[in-house]
Amino acid sequence: MTRSETHGTQRVAVLADSQNLYHTARSLHEQNIDYAELLDAAVDGRSLTRAIAYVIKANAPEEETFFEALVDIGFETRIKEIRTFGDGSKKADWDVGMSLDAVSLADHVDAIALCTGDGDFARLCTHLQHEGVRVDALSFRESTAESLIDAADGFIDLSEDTDRFLL
């Protein structure tokens, strides 16, 4: 029995850490994520309330096409510029933004699917569960923090079906 058979009336929000997924898919499999399949697996027959992809603008030639494709698939995009510091180091992540969106959405959904392997989200899982929200994590097991897998109510290992989840 699938989640959709037992929780078909759940409202779900999908939050995708695109930077984390991109780098993991490239380093492990030298391929890109199929975001349509990712969204389908995250929703799993439930009622989609919001789908948000958190992306980093790096001024690469193909990124506008990628951002448009995400919108066509059904994701809202949150775009952040890379910050360059005086020493030349660069930083861009969406951990705080994703967490704030998840907490804000908690009153409006029954489940949140976190598409990331970042262990920083384990504490967010606990908070959301305390608020009565089911949390599913979707990522590649090889690079997913055990703390996130343990904290989530469900885990989908994208590496188990690379034909589906990779382009």
Rank of each mutant, 00 (worst) to 15 (best):
L124P: 09
L38V: 08
Y35N: 03
S147C: 14
G88I: 13
H108F: 03
E62S: 09
A92D: 04
L148R: 06
G45Q: 00
I52R: 12
G132A: 03
G74F: 00
D153R: 02
I33F: 12
A102V: 11
D44L: 01
L48N: 09
A25M: 02
S147D: 11
S27D: 15
C115W: 15
E63Q: 11
D118Y: 06
A122M: 10
I82L: 14
D157L: 06
F85K: 09
A16I: 05
R78N: 11
A122W: 05
F66R: 10
G154D: 09
I156W: 01
K90I: 01
S159G: 15
K57A: 10
E142S: 15
A102K: 14
V135I: 04
L148F: 10
P61F: 13
T49K: 10
K90P: 03
V43A: 07
D163Y: 01
G74C: 00
A151L: 02
L148D: 06
L38D: 03
I112M: 12
F67R: 10
E5P: 01
E64K: 11
S4Q: 06
M1S: 12
I82P: 11
Q129P: 00
V135D: 00
C125H: 07
D17Q: 07
G86C: 05
Y54V: 06
I56T: 09
Q19G: 14
L166E: 01
L15G: 04
E68V: 14
S4V: 00
A41G: 05
R83G: 06
S27L: 12
D72K: 04
K90V: 02
R26C: 08
